[in-house]
Design a protein around this nucleic acid. Sequence first.
DNA 1: TCTGTCAAGATTGTTGAACGATTTTATTTC
DNA 2: GAAATAAAATCGTTCAACAATCTTGACAGA
Lengths: 223, 223
Amino acid sequence: MTTQDAALTLAQRLADSIRSRLIAGELKPGQRLSEATLSSDLDVSRNSLREAFRLLTKEGLLRHEPNRGVFVATPSMASIIDIYRVRRMIECRALEQAYPQHPAVARMQRAVDTALKCRAAGDWVGVGSANMAFHAAIVDLADSARLNAFYAQIAAELRLSFGLLENPEFLHAPYVDLNAAILEDLKAGKAQEAAGALETYLERSERTVLAAFARIGEGERRG
Amino acid sequence: MTTQDAALTLAQRLADSIRSRLIAGELKPGQRLSEATLSSDLDVSRNSLREAFRLLTKEGLLRHEPNRGVFVATPSMASIIDIYRVRRMIECRALEQAYPQHPAVARMQRAVDTALKCRAAGDWVGVGSANMAFHAAIVDLADSARLNAFYAQIAAELRLSFGLLENPEFLHAPYVDLNAAILEDLKAGKAQEAAGALETYLERSERTVLAAFARIGEGERRG
DNA sequence: TCTGTCAAGATTGTTGAACGATTTTATTTC
DNA sequence: GAAATAAAATCGTTCAACAATCTTGACAGA
């Protein structure tokens, strides 16, 4: 898979590793990451770990409080709203101006197919991943490396929020068919309609996520 | 001004300092930044400097080639095209959906006023800065912290490209009046028209920058 | 009991040196 | 002149140390 792992610098590999654990929910929001503890756990020097921390802080996955340490970023309603605002602006516009022959359309198709297969198998985590891939492919339509990188960051942040939410079926299942419909529109040359559908879609998704987030917020406040 | 400078970590202050020198053109694109040399020049340890490098690399201002060193990012036609693509998507959309009472409108106004004043005084660098502030204010209209941060990065990258170009008058002067016109449209509630004007504006600016870039490219190839 | 003070302990911030790994430069050889 | 080799320079990474800052807990006083 990821050959030439050795070509990457240790800090990058560390960042990758920690990012995975963040997205997987192993590291909980708000949790402090001790330099001494983590560096000895991962068997690397504090300096290398600090470089990785700087990377992940720039990505918005960690928060750095000088002299206090780094913490797993804590998603908030504000951050979710912000992220969805960005998504609507980027994804809808990318879709709107897309042409059906774009290579990213094939990627969208694969994502939809995968999602359908996973849904049939009851693999909701797989459905979630496929949906994320679908949206990344939409951004690809805009043909901008910087936009892709930015979106990847936003997506990782959002996955941090999803990690807080249980019930992935509820969170991802409804969107498989909507994704398929959007793809059909696009392939039929109806980019404008696809964009409109996506806009509605994202608003709905935002409401769902915010509502779920509000619920767990209540629970934690009294827990 | 920037009080609590001590509150920031050394790596951040280093990154700020280096970023300034990059934007000011003191450090030339393609130039290699030696860890040993820079750390002794700035009187900091290599480790701290490396943390700063990771930060600036994430921002796209430096390029890191493992085992070879870090280099000042080299703007290319591709990067300029990419950046303008992003700008059109973000700025035009932000403007389109803006309402005239938004606080960022006041910032746009101040930027226009400053630009007019600087132009009258023949201060083209000042005009350039004011124009940049105008566009940053446009992005502010979207009310997204992440979008603002992303745009700040893009803008810094673009300034790196501008640094290569001589003749700031030619590069910035024509846009002062266009900015003023866009602002008037927005204040008059004609957001749609403002967005359209900005789209045209950015296309023109892109052509200008690309052409200037192509010229210096030729010159360097035979120089 | 509560509050503020202060010392002790823990953690981060930063440095300098060290050494293996990789790249670049210089030298030698054919 | 090109290929092979040795030497030098640079990056990658670790380690140990200490200063600066934050946290904890004991303690005195209201």
